[in-house]
Amino acid sequence: MNIFRLGGDLAHLLAIIILLLKIWTTRSCAGISGKSQILFALTFTARYLDLFTNFVSVYNSVMKVVYLAAAYATLYLMYVKFKATYDHNHDTFRLEFLILPAAGLALIINHEFSIIEVMWTFSIYLEAVAILPQLFMVSKTGEAESITSHYLFALGSYRALYIVNWVYRYYSEGFYDMIATLAGVVQTVLYCDFFYLYITKVLKGKKLQLPA
């Protein structure tokens, strides 16, 4: 463990907590893409199949459980409890366009052709594009509540910090994982225009407005 990876995990945890708090306190999931949340739940489910078979540390196991619980709690809040506030009309990204290519690629490019490893690889590829429905929704509505933009900033920062972690691990212990690293770069690049808007607008107290 290093501070970059710990920082990334905490940024990820912060993002998940911000989202749950936003939905719970405003009792609304307006502006949030349920489809992205489905992809995140799918990502954690496919990635943490080794929760009971591969014990790394208490921290690792606890965080996996927290991520899984939070992902499904968010789905429950969005599709059951506050279903009436879910914005179907703007959350129209076709999930099969993301799930099928990720699954296909995971079968072709992986570290080992075993169930657990292919599922891990699938989760890595899926996570890289899981935010697309959310970014698509923000571009369709043309704006995002500031709490939603804080959520996106924390979520984008998490994988950016993981990239720093991979560079650090390469130089400090010779560890590298090209699949996770390249997917992480793609994932972070997808946030770039959002990061620009967040830093130039939201941090100056303006609302996140996308150029129409």
Partner: peptide, 10 residues
């Protein structure tokens, strides 16, 4: 790359 048995990252 040397592969850890399983993955140690979240």
């Amino acid at each position: 790359c040397h592969r850890l048995l399983g993955h140690d990252e979240l």
